[in-house]
Design a protein around this nucleic acid. Structure first.
Length: 1167
RNA sequence: AGUCCUGUAGCUCAGUUGGUUAGAGCGCUACACUGAUAAUGUAGAGGUCCGCAGUUCAAAUCUGCGCAGGACUACCA
């Protein structure tokens, strides 16, 4: 047991962190914090796995601080909080990095480099920066178990993922189907949105656009009286004319207004009637056209400068739905339900910003198109190829199928985008086109793209209303630089749509911080969630565990290694394979060694051929699982569920469904997760989806989605801009505690943080500096007095002690509530306010004397105990946010007193608020004392009277008894604080006090809202007479604008604002008057105090110890001398002087005090 | 384009169920204090509460429409 509280020469927070880190390491404090809670209820935390193939940034410090705070808090609150670290290891970024390093592209995989080697490189690359991550984790004080992390490429983890997918498969929630995905024909691969959103992918391109005329079929019912069957067309715009042969529908907005326009075609000059959105008429009928009101008088000849047009009918989009039209370019028919094609359908996505308000719909090449078409039962333009498989009109190389061969325009077999042509091919094509098009274009100058030729054909056939170039942004493949296509690809999907409502319902049970993200962004997202596209044509990831026979009639989904092994054995027995690659694996043996024998990555499992029940070979589906499924599986896969730890999850699932506490240990659903808001549709979503689909539960109960960390100017941090903050440098320069404290208290976690290093300095000074000073102050005097908290708690403590204890208990209550509510910012700010304003700036300042003056009395012990309790409480409450310094503070205090057996603040129990010690009345009293003191100080300042100069009296008018009582109770505190002899409470006597009256808007408002203005005006006119009438009558009754008004006393706010003839200050309801008369007696006391101050300084400068006694010699004039004489005992007492003498001193003796009343030379010797 | 967040002093942020003088810290200026001293106190300057409209007796606060910044999702005729 230490005898003395450690005292420090200064506060070096980075060093504190280092020391405490060493201590944690030596004492295994983290492990202990979990062990001591063995048997306690568990608080389940799941770590969102970061990818270790990039370096951590300062935002990770932010995110991990938030995670850490609540895990530490819950530990203090009595829970066992296990935290497993995790690594996300699969995915495209890893692949890209490896390819870049090896200098290869995807095409080289399998040729220049084997899939084996490729995957090996990925495995190594992805864990490259784990050291840095572990270092950051340590230094920032994030407690998470890095020794036994879950890793998504681990066979056990992958096995659990397979199992989850198998459950979904068994529930018939998986299917394979076409969807429209970004596709790069030149690279031959689908692209994820991640790839499309890489910088530079969207580029402005100039495309040939076309407003096509779709002729309405004869006999169709149309909502226009003046329609002429042979002229009637629907107008639709497209920027990709090559999709027009695949058109199978036209989409209108049901609520959009459309019109019928009578006019002439600008290319064929034939009279036409066209339907388009009303808002877009002026846009489509540009310079070449002129509007005419009366259609019957219109006339037009070829060669006329302007083409007249007239609106001759109106309707809503809904009225157009169902109208059938003639196929625009009838090269092919959909192989299915062709009778359902070529009609007008409704769609909410239609806008009237561009085009015609009627959308050309090609379900094979547009996601929206596919969706609305499916809803309306319109088939996509798929035809059957040689093998009777349905295929779109464009092949995987980006070429039109041969069915589109046009005798004049070619098309069949050609690239739909000119950009796909190789060098030199264009020349050859041009020669061919010259020949083909010679009847239409005499001398063709340059190659015509597919788009250009299609529009040309439409022009000639009276099917084009307008053709022009149009600049818009279009995505390009980041690898080949060529424009992408939206193309239907065969992918595996999870039927999320089927469980959508359940996901919405379960979401309502999740406590979101902030609420709006859960209700808004996440809730809306769930309501419109589409089926989850699982397929990725990649190499480094978890393979889709589905094996299918070639004719697709037989299929198996594998859910475990054991199952795969036995299925593989069947195949070996059936002669499909020579040997079982999993022969070595022992089912049921979950040891590391056993699992080290196998690998479930693509390169291994693709070798495995299984046998179907009917004896056919089955091969694995080529694709991998979306990596988001990997991380979404974390709550289960990190436990290797259900192969191990089965009951941990099952207990939790059961408890959640029954709404009871789990029967035994439980690790699900997760109690708490926290990640960036960018995970809303990422990890937050995938976890929720998997838990809902597989277990019909939530995945997590509480979630914080935190905002971004921006630079101090509010710009996004990036390496490119050079404004990224290095987390390691920050931590080593400023220390983890102030960094964490700053991040948490400066902005709410879910708001973006403008990260400014100066803010950390401020926290360092303001909060930690003050706390350190307060501790140092305590340690200094406690060591002198030998305070070890060995005495029993002092029962009847002075007012000021009871006050700070009341505040302290309120603090415990409020901070606990804030933590419970996942509001760390509130908790931190409360603690900070308590330390700087309450404890340091008021309690310690007022009590300083009690610590260093006099003997070791009960009052002194009370002061020590009180301050000790406050410091200890702050240490515990603040430890989740500032784990290092608070641990040191706690241990420093505890090292002498041993009130706790725990060796760390992180192992103790959270203090409980003692309601009996909370005294609101007392807190209000002190509030009065603080206000009055500050007002007196401000008056002194105004009059230039130093605080050291005692004054006789202050007067405070009191308007109610409660206020008088409270003031009376704290008057000693006020008097000593502002150096005044007495306080006089002025009772209400007319004439002495000036009163002011104001209406109480809050109480009058609800009663007489309408007359509020007049009432306020009337009261504003009132003087002393009316005020006293209100006071004697206890209210006011009268008539105002013919209305009876009755106000009682509480409807008024009566305040004082002046005492005539006195120096007065007023603030809120309190008024203070100061008597500034300085009598001779006061004057001499002032001189005495002035001298004491100089002597104290001199003592200190002379290097005397606090307890040393001295002898004094003064060389002073008579005024000063008489002041000394009349305060002799007082001075001696204050400066610990044994004796006072007068003598003539030389300039070399002592110090000179330049007082107003005459310079005085002071000399002292140790006595 | 959609969804969500943010907008209050030079900067970072508070601001209760709407209630009449809109606050704090930092910074700046001036002064004071000096047994917490690389600390502290007091005072001062500094506001179109992003804009407009509405609801209301009363709007920083509620509603609508905008503007600016940010995030996510989507990218379309």
């Amino acid at each position: 047991m230490a005898e003395k509280y450690p005292e420090y020469k200064g506060l070096n927070l980075p060093n504190v962190a280092k020391d405490v880190l060493d201590k944690w390491e030596a004492e295994q404090t983290f492990q202990k914090s979990i062990e001591v809670r063995e048997g306690s209820p568990s608080f389940v935390f799941t770590e969102g796995p970061p990818s270790a193939n990039g370096l951590p940034g300062i935002h990770h410090v932010m995110a991990r601080t938030i995670k850490d705070i609540f895990c530490r808090y819950k530990t203090l609150a009595g829970y066992q909080v296990k935290r497993k670290a995790g690594w996300d290891t699969h995915g495209l970024p890893v692949e890209l990095k490896v390819e870049k390093e090896l200098g290869i592209t995807k095409e080289d995989i399998g040729t220049k480099i084997s899939v084996d080697e490729y995957n090996k490189a990925c495995r190594e690359a992805v864990m490259r920066y784990t050291d840095e991550w572990e270092k950051l984790t340590m230094e920032m004080g994030y407690w998470v178990d890095m020794d036994d992390p879950y890793i998504t490429y681990d066979p056990k983890y992958m096995e659990s993922v397979w199992w989850l997918l198998g459950q979904i498969y068994e529930k018939d929630l998986m299917y394979k189907g076409y969807t429209i995905q970004p596709y790069s024909p030149k690279a031959g691969t689908g692209l994820s949105s991640h790839e499309i959103n890489q910088p530079g992918c969207y580029r402005d391109v100039k495309d040939n656009t076309c407003v096509a005329q779709f002729k309405v079929k004869p006999g169709e019912k149309v909502p226009f009286d003046q329609a002429k069957v042979d002229q009637l067309h629907l107008l639709a715009w497209t920027t990709t004319p090559w999709t027009l042969p695949s058109n199978t529908a036209l989409t209108v907005g049901p609520k959009i207004e459309y019109v019928l326009v009578q006019t002439w075609n600008q290319y064929t000059h034939e009279p036409i009637q066209v339907i388009l959105a009303k808002n877009l008429v002026t846009k489509q009928f540009g310079k070449k056209f002129v509007k005419v009101e009366d259609a019957s008088s219109m006339n037009y000849q070829q060669g006329d400068k302007k083409i007249p047009y007239a609106i001759i009918g109106e309707c809503l989009g809904a009225d157009l739905v169902g109208i059938r039209y003639e196929q625009l370019l009838p090269y092919c028919q959909p192989h299915e339900n062709a009778d359902q094609a070529f009609r007008v359908i409704p769609g909410d996505f239609v806008t009237t910003e561009d085009g015609t308000g009627i959308v050309h719909t090609a379900p094979t090449f547009g996601a929206d198109d596919a969706f609305v078409a499916k809803q309306a039962g319109v088939p996509p333009m798929l035809i059957l190829d040689e093998n009777e498989n349905p295929v779109p009109l464009v092949d995987l190389q980006g070429r039109f199928r041969k069915e589109l061969a046009d005798p004049v325009f070619g098309l069949g077999g050609e690239y739909v985008k000119a950009e796909y042509l190789e060098e030199g091919e264009e020349e050859k094509e041009l020669a061919r086109q010259r020949e083909m098009l010679k009847d239409i274009i005499a001398d063709l100058k340059s190659y015509l793209s597919v788009d250009e030729r299609i529009t040309l054909k439409l022009k000639i056939e009276n099917k084009a209303f307008n053709i022009e170039k149009y600049v818009h942004s279009y995505p390009h493949c980041w690898r080949t630089d060529k424009p992408i296509l939206y193309y239907p690809l065969d992918s595996w999907f999870i039927k999320v749509t089927e469980k959508r409502e359940r996901m919405v319902a379960l979401n309502k049970k999740i406590n979101w911080k902030p609420k709006s993200t859960g209700e808004g962004r996440f809730g809306n997202w769930l309501e419109t969630a589409n089926d989850w596209n699982l397929s990725r044509s990649r190499y480094w990831g978890i393979p889709i565990p589905v094996w299918t026979s070639e004719d697709k009639t037989e299929q198996i989904c594998i859910s475990s290694v054991e199952q795969l092994k036995s299925e593989a054995q069947k195949a070996v027995d059936a002669g499909m394979m020579d040997k079982n690659p999993l022969a070595e694996f022992v089912p049921g043996d979950f040891s590391k060694e056993n699992y080290a024998k196998i690998d479930l990555h693509k390169n291994y499992v693709d070798e495995i051929i299984l046998v179907s029940p009917s004896g056919k070979p089955m091969k694995r589906e080529a694709d991998l699982i979306d990596v988001w499924f990997d991380s979404g599986s974390a709550p289960f896969a990190q436990q290797h569920y259900p192969f191990e730890n089965k009951e941990l999850i099952d207990n939790g699932v059961e408890a959640f469904k029954n709404g009871t506490a789990p029967k035994g240990p439980s690790a699900f659903p997760t109690d708490y997760i926290a990640e960036g808001v960018d995970q809303t549709r990422g990890w937050f979503y995938t976890q929720h989806a998997i838990a809902t689909l597989v277990f019909d539960t939530v995945s997590y109960k509480n979630v914080i989605s935190n905002g971004l960390v921006l630079d101090k100017n509010g710009q996004k941090m990036s390496k490119r801009l050079g404004n990224a903050v290095d987390p390691f440098e920050t931590l080593s320069t400023y220390g983890a505690d102030p960094t964490r404290w700053y991040m948490i208290t400066n902005a709410q976690p879910w708001d973006n943080l403008k990260f400014d290093l100066e803010g950390i300095t401020e926290v360092q000074r303001k909060f930690f500096g003050t706390l350190y000073n307060t501790y140092s102050f305590f340690a200094l005097y406690a060591n002198i007095d030998g305070f070890t908290y060995s005495e029993a708690d002092v029962p009847n403590r002075p007012e000021i002690d009871r006050w700070i204890l009341s505040k302290m208990n309120s603090l415990i209550k409020d901070v606990t509530a804030a933590y419970e509510d996942y509001e760390p910012t509130k908790a931190g700010r409360l603690i900070q306010e308590f330390v700087t304003d309450e404890l340091s700036n008021w309690y310690v300042r007022l009590c300083r004397r009690r610590f260093w003056k006099g003997d070791y009395t009960e009052d002194k012990i009370s002061a020590y105990q009180t301050l000790y309790q406050c410091l200890e409480t702050v240490a515990v409450l603040g430890s989740p946010i500032a784990p290092f310094y608070m641990d040191q503070l706690f241990c420093d205090l505890n090292s002498v007193c041993n009130r706790h057996t725990a060796s760390s603040v992180h192992l103790v129990d959270l203090p409980k608020a003692n309601e009996a010690e909370i005294d609101i009345d007392l807190e209000e009293k002190m509030d009065i004392a603080q206000k009055v003191s500050s007002m007196v100080l401000s008056l002194r300042k105004r009059e230039q009277i130093k605080v050291r100069q005692p004054l006789q009296k202050i007067m405070v008018p009191v308007l109610d008894k409660d206020f008088a009582r409270r003031l009376e109770d704290v008057k000693d505190i006020i008097l000593s604080e502002v150096n005044i002899k007495e306080i006089e409470l002025l009772e209400d006597t007319e004439g002495v006090i000036n009163k002011k009256i104001k209406p109480n808007f809050k109480t009058i408002g609800p009663k007489y809202g309408k007359q509020m203005k007049q009432i306020a005006a009337m009261i504003g006119q009132w003087g002393a007479k009316e005020i006293s009438e209100v006071e004697t009558n206890g209210g006011w009754k009268g008539e105002l604008n013919g209305e009876e008004i009755a106000l009682d006393i509480s409807d008024f706010e009566i305040t004082t604002d002046d005492i005539p003839g006195w120096l007065v200050a007023s603030e809120g309801r309190i008024t203070v008057a100061l008597d500034i008369t300085i009598t001779d007696e006061l004057k001499s006391e002032g001189i005495a105090r002035e001298l004491i101050n100089r002597i104290q300084n001199y003592r200190k400068d002379s290097g005397l110890e606090v307890m040393d006694r001295i002898k004094l010699t003064f060389d002073a004039n008579d005024v000063v001398k008489s002041a000394i004489e009349s305060n002799k005992e007082y001075i001696k007492n204050e400066v610990l002087a044994l004796d006072i003498q007068y003598a003539t001193l030389s300039e070399n003796d002592g110090v000179l005090a330049d007082l107003e009343e005459g310079d005085t030379r002071i000399d002292l010797v140790k006595g």
